[in-house]
Structures are given as C-alpha cells and as structure tokens.
Simulated scan of single mutants.
Amino acid sequence: MSYHNLESRSIAFAAMCQAAYLVDKIASKGICPDAVAFNASLHSIMRTDASSPLEIFGGHESLKLGYQTVITQLDNENGSRNLQVTKYVAGLLALERKLSANSGTLNLLGERINQVNRQLATFEIDDNSVLSNLDSIYRDLISNLGPKIQVNGNPTYLQQEHTQHKIRALLLAGVRAAVLWRQVGGKRRQLFLSRKAIVHQIKLNLHRT
C-alpha cells in the first residue's frame, strides 16, 4: 500500500510540530506538559519497521498535541502562532535534508538506534539513561550536519543536564518525523500551497483521538 497521501503527510507534519512544541515548553517551563505525547515522540524513533505512518506513533491519540499545534500554527487568524515552533520545524526540515544525503550517517544512526532498542528491554523510554543515549545520538550524528538548532528558553532550565537530554531526544524525534514527511511525499512548498487541505485533514485526524 502506498502512503504517499495527505493523511500520511498530515501525521508526519503533526509529529514534527509535536516534538517542536514539547521542546519549546520544556526549554521555557522546565517541565513536560504532556507525558503521552513525549513518550510517543520518543518511541517513534525506535519504530523503523512499522507497517504504516500512524503505527509509528501508536495511533491518533498519541498525536493529539501535535494536531492541536498544527491548527494553532496554520489556522490562526489572529496571527498568534508560536514562532519558536515555526523555527524549530524549519530547523528539523533542514537537518533532515542533510541527513538523507549522507548514507554513512544514516547507517550509523540505524546502528545506534538498535543499541537503544536493546536498552529498552531493561529501561523505560523516559529513563534518564535512555534519554542520555538519545541525546548523544543527536549530538554525535545529527546536530553537526547543518546549522545547529538554537533552542531558546529559561537559562535555569537549559543548564540542567536532564532538561538537555529531553530536548535533544525530542529533536531527534523531530528529525525522525521529518524523514517520514519526505518519505510520504512531503515538500516544504506544500505548507504554503496546501495549507487549507492540511488543516482540514488535521481536524479530521483530531476527531479520531
């Protein structure tokens, strides 16, 4: 079955927005506002052989925060969208382009993700040892591929090691979603030319949560 369709692209884009939203909130508030969304985003990194885009994230419910974020970003008549989310999504798309052009890094990424999968036999996805491992994957393999994503927030929280682990793990999840976005036919221009169609599909998805 082909997943080159609007529904699949809406799922991938919502996943990017979900990761970006969580990064912004953790960086600025120091706490994760939605544990279900956080865990679903991180688990998506591990699901490299899922049978469908939706299966990667465990169902529509796990992307509810992402759907709500897309609507805020693209269907906001008063213009009060979150500019940090917009910036982070743009950065994730830029890093994905660099990653997809680097087969050596892709192979290393697969090996490192397999290591984390083995770790999950003992630890939960939100255990600090797992978050630290995901953090190191992002720093070692992704961050230096292109312009670094500069995360803005409260310095008190940004200086905490555990917060840094969460943020980089989420950025890795965001890149994973950006890879999926490209795989199902997503292109940057669609975010401008097909915005209304994307928003309509996202609202349909949201009703399924």
Rank of each mutant, 00 (worst) to 15 (best):
M1R: 11
M1G: 08
M1W: 06
S2K: 13
S2C: 10
Y3E: 12
H4V: 15
N5C: 07
N5A: 03
E7V: 08
E7A: 11
S10K: 04
A14M: 06
Y21F: 05
V23Y: 05
V23S: 08
K25N: 07
I26H: 06
K29G: 08
D34E: 01
L42S: 04
I45N: 08
T48F: 05
P53C: 13
L54C: 12
L54E: 12
I56M: 15
F57M: 03
G59W: 14
E61A: 15
E61C: 07
S62W: 04
L63A: 11
K64E: 15
K64C: 13
T72M: 15
T72W: 15
T72K: 15
D75G: 14
N76K: 13
N78A: 11
R81L: 10
V85R: 04
Y88H: 07
V89Y: 01
A90E: 03
A90M: 05
L93N: 02
E96R: 06
L99A: 04
L99N: 03
A101M: 05
S103W: 09
S103D: 13
N107L: 14
N107R: 14
G110I: 06
R112D: 11
V116P: 08
N117Y: 08
R118L: 10
L120T: 06
A121L: 12
A121S: 09
F123Q: 11
F123S: 13
D126E: 14
N128R: 05
L131R: 11
N133A: 15
R139Q: 08
P147Q: 11
K148H: 04
I149E: 10
Q150M: 11
V151E: 07
N152V: 14
Q159D: 04
E161R: 06
E161C: 00
T163P: 04
Q164R: 13
H165A: 10
H165W: 13
V175E: 01
R176P: 01
A177D: 01
A178G: 02
V179Y: 06
L180D: 03
R182I: 02
R182H: 08
V184A: 08
G186T: 07
K187I: 07
R189S: 08
L191D: 00
L191A: 01
L193C: 13
R195N: 00
V199K: 00
H200D: 02
I202E: 00
R208L: 10
T209K: 01
